[in-house]
Amino acid sequence: MPVSPYIRRLRAHIGTDLILLPGVSTVVRDHTGHILLARRSDNGRWSLPAGTVDPGEQPADAALRELYEETGVHARIERLGGVATHPVTYPNGDRCEYLNVWFRCRATGGTARVNDDESTAVAWFHPEQLPDLDDWATLRINTTADPHAPAWHADPGSHHHALTNPGAL
């Protein structure tokens, strides 16, 4: 998976030690309510399109950029889905804690396809027929199900199980 030049420079100094990074992800629905997922090339799991925010980039811009780069789909943001920190340990041993901002989005164009080397498959799934997903992906999908719900966050002092298990973005 491509690593941004910014993160590559950080890793040159600290190796695989923990870094805190800004991350974004999208829960994209089409006009029928199907949800867009991508099968990650690094671990083979289905997940939501996601990535890091580049220096100087706003989270909403990063979310839409990552979505298109990974899936070929264009979307508009309908609302903020939530915000939380989430640990990730990559297969190469790199450890990150992402401050992730996720968005509920509506597909507006493009064609769902593998659009870079971060995914091996891209597909739309009916919400009742999702493939096996980790708790982190499920949390983001569930917190964006209601188009009018407020943005989600962990309550102060709480430790939601989906936010403590290292996994994919």
Rank of each mutant, 00 (worst) to 15 (best):
residue 98 Y to A: 09
residue 98 Y to D: 12
residue 98 Y to P: 08
residue 99 L to M: 10
residue 99 L to N: 04
residue 100 N to H: 03
residue 100 N to P: 03
residue 101 V to M: 03
residue 101 V to Q: 05
residue 101 V to C: 03
residue 101 V to D: 04
residue 102 W to R: 08
residue 103 F to K: 10
residue 103 F to L: 08
residue 103 F to W: 12
residue 103 F to M: 07
residue 104 R to N: 06
residue 104 R to D: 08
residue 105 C to T: 00
residue 106 R to S: 15
residue 107 A to F: 04
residue 108 T to N: 05
residue 108 T to V: 07
residue 108 T to S: 08
residue 109 G to C: 02
residue 109 G to I: 06
residue 109 G to T: 11
residue 111 T to W: 01
residue 111 T to R: 15
residue 111 T to L: 14
residue 111 T to A: 13
residue 111 T to H: 10
residue 112 A to V: 00
residue 112 A to K: 04
residue 113 R to M: 08
residue 113 R to L: 02
residue 114 V to L: 03
residue 115 N to K: 01
residue 115 N to P: 09
residue 115 N to H: 15
residue 115 N to R: 01
residue 116 D to G: 09
residue 116 D to T: 04
residue 116 D to E: 06
residue 116 D to M: 03
residue 118 E to P: 02
residue 118 E to F: 02
residue 119 S to W: 05
residue 119 S to P: 03
residue 120 T to S: 15
residue 120 T to I: 12
residue 120 T to P: 09
residue 121 A to L: 03
residue 122 V to Y: 06
residue 122 V to Q: 10
residue 122 V to F: 05
residue 123 A to P: 05
residue 123 A to E: 03
residue 123 A to R: 10
residue 123 A to G: 04
residue 124 W to L: 00
residue 124 W to V: 00
residue 124 W to Y: 09
residue 124 W to S: 00
residue 125 F to E: 12
residue 125 F to G: 02
residue 125 F to Y: 15
residue 126 H to W: 13
residue 126 H to M: 11
residue 126 H to V: 11
residue 127 P to E: 08
residue 127 P to Y: 01
residue 127 P to Q: 07
residue 127 P to I: 00
residue 128 E to H: 14
residue 129 Q to P: 03
residue 129 Q to E: 15
residue 129 Q to T: 12
residue 129 Q to D: 09
residue 130 L to H: 13
residue 130 L to P: 02
residue 132 D to I: 10
residue 132 D to S: 09
residue 132 D to V: 10
residue 132 D to N: 09
residue 133 L to Y: 01
residue 133 L to K: 09
residue 133 L to D: 08
residue 133 L to A: 13
residue 134 D to V: 12
residue 134 D to F: 00
residue 134 D to H: 06
residue 135 D to C: 05
residue 135 D to L: 14
residue 137 A to Q: 03
residue 137 A to S: 15
residue 137 A to W: 01
residue 138 T to L: 13
residue 138 T to C: 12
residue 138 T to R: 14
residue 138 T to A: 11
residue 139 L to I: 06
residue 139 L to T: 13
residue 140 R to N: 14
residue 140 R to I: 10
residue 140 R to M: 14
residue 140 R to E: 04
residue 140 R to F: 02
residue 141 I to T: 01
residue 141 I to E: 05
residue 141 I to Q: 01
residue 142 N to P: 05
residue 142 N to H: 07
residue 143 T to M: 13
residue 144 T to R: 09
residue 144 T to N: 10
residue 145 A to S: 14
residue 145 A to I: 07
residue 145 A to R: 14
residue 145 A to L: 14
residue 146 D to N: 14
residue 146 D to C: 02
residue 146 D to F: 09
residue 147 P to M: 06
residue 147 P to Q: 02
residue 147 P to L: 05
residue 147 P to Y: 10
residue 147 P to E: 05
residue 148 H to P: 02
residue 148 H to C: 04
residue 148 H to W: 02
residue 148 H to I: 00
residue 149 A to S: 15
residue 149 A to I: 04
residue 149 A to P: 08
residue 149 A to Q: 04
residue 149 A to C: 07
residue 149 A to M: 11
residue 150 P to C: 08
residue 150 P to M: 06
residue 150 P to D: 12
residue 150 P to R: 10
residue 151 A to L: 00
residue 151 A to T: 13
residue 151 A to W: 13
residue 152 W to M: 06
residue 153 H to A: 15
residue 153 H to I: 04
residue 153 H to R: 13
